[in-house]
Design a protein around this nucleic acid. Sequence first.
DNA 1: TGCTCAAAGTTGTCTAGTCCAATTCGAGAC
DNA 2: GTCTCGAATTGGACTAGACAACTTTGAGCA
Lengths: 247, 247
Amino acid sequence: MVVVASERAASREPKYYLVKRHLLDLIAALPPGTLVPTERVLTVELGTSRTTVRRALSELVGEGRLVRRHGSGTYVAEPKITWPLQMTSFTEQASASGYSTSTRLLEATRTRADEGIAARLGLRVGASTYFIERLRLVDDTPMAVETSHLSAARFPGLIPELRKKSSLYGVLAENYGVQPVEAEETIETASASPREADLLGVDTGSPILLLGRHSFDVDGQPIEYVRSWYRGDRYTFVARLSAHRQE
Amino acid sequence: MVVVASERAASREPKYYLVKRHLLDLIAALPPGTLVPTERVLTVELGTSRTTVRRALSELVGEGRLVRRHGSGTYVAEPKITWPLQMTSFTEQASASGYSTSTRLLEATRTRADEGIAARLGLRVGASTYFIERLRLVDDTPMAVETSHLSAARFPGLIPELRKKSSLYGVLAENYGVQPVEAEETIETASASPREADLLGVDTGSPILLLGRHSFDVDGQPIEYVRSWYRGDRYTFVARLSAHRQE
DNA sequence: TGCTCAAAGTTGTCTAGTCCAATTCGAGAC
DNA sequence: GTCTCGAATTGGACTAGACAACTTTGAGCA
């Protein structure tokens, strides 16, 4: 085995990354839906083990470049979908972009605030709160799992209303006269738990874009605390920013 | 080993996830810097293979819960750092939060615009552009790798100025009278290439938060196109949004 | 022609192990 | 006491293979 002289201390490329680059070259010009060679074929073609091939494939699946179908094969993926990141309601946000969206209410129960939720909603620990879990779909494909927490004392009878109207922001405005005027959004990477993976139709451990929204009314009172687990392999978020303050 | 009866059809939990939950329980109450059991110890304690243990560990490292040090051990990680996501300059952004920041200029060269860059900068393919690559550090620890693309014709002599002053926004304002007033930000997940991994001090394939910024001047002319690869294991981004338009 | 079902092919999960690379630490030399 | 160096320990990369779960296909049958 020939070793490159004066190897950079930097960037020692693992073998799986060579496989990954090979696959990227291969799929660069292929249309979505094209079948790529099977794992065992790649194994012999590239003189490596299946574990190494699978590591490269998994990374490309996580990046939204490939899709694996159990028992069938591995295919070139559709390009990522660009999704607006605004503080507007989910339903309108999407229909404006030409997508058909829907929501499945997974859970809507009363529970007691733990330390984190109590602090964010301005309640004491153990106070009664709603826990709402919804699945967001775009063109009938799961996009995100969303959990919301709200004060039960502040919004009595919320759950039956929500089951009727389905739009949470609509219910808050019409039934309680509450509108969020400010919000703190947090963004981080995460990985899918088995439950999230199952709901989103991805593998456990898949990359997730985790968005948090902590919204407040005109008096600065917290309204809700939401966390949304978005498929990291299918969505790119976009926000338009205007520079009021700029240096 | 006891197996739970009547397994749910949904959410079939892989064995590595059991290991992961075991580790999460273990580290929940431990302070950052605490040593966790070695991979080989976990292997025998949990009756599994080292591959399975390593998968659980890798996921926890990617989530910023653990840190691995080659030859030394695996440790409980520091909590993530919350970082403001604003359109202001990097240097001020941070010192306001009490962090000491610095930038290392990795590359600053002239090159020719490919299709993507040309479209974004409003140039023809092959037009002369600057390629600027910088490493952003917080308290002397790498935070992000940042690449910028600008029109060379529009900002003649930019590179020597940049080497003197180091703040790109400062140079653009003082030397060229240009200020970004609007920008389109994109956010997505990615995984670290060997080069990025090396610069950021993480493993190849680690989760990355990839931010893009496409900024425009007061006339709507594109100024620059920047992409920043942030360590996904160490940073949570936060943005305050005011609802001018709200429904 | 249309249906059934078994076989083949593909990805998913997990195991057991080898060898390498970096760190740590103590015995021994000075 | 201090330093050096090698052994032990730890994480990193990779291999070869077993078996399970799911899909596809086509031979055989009605």
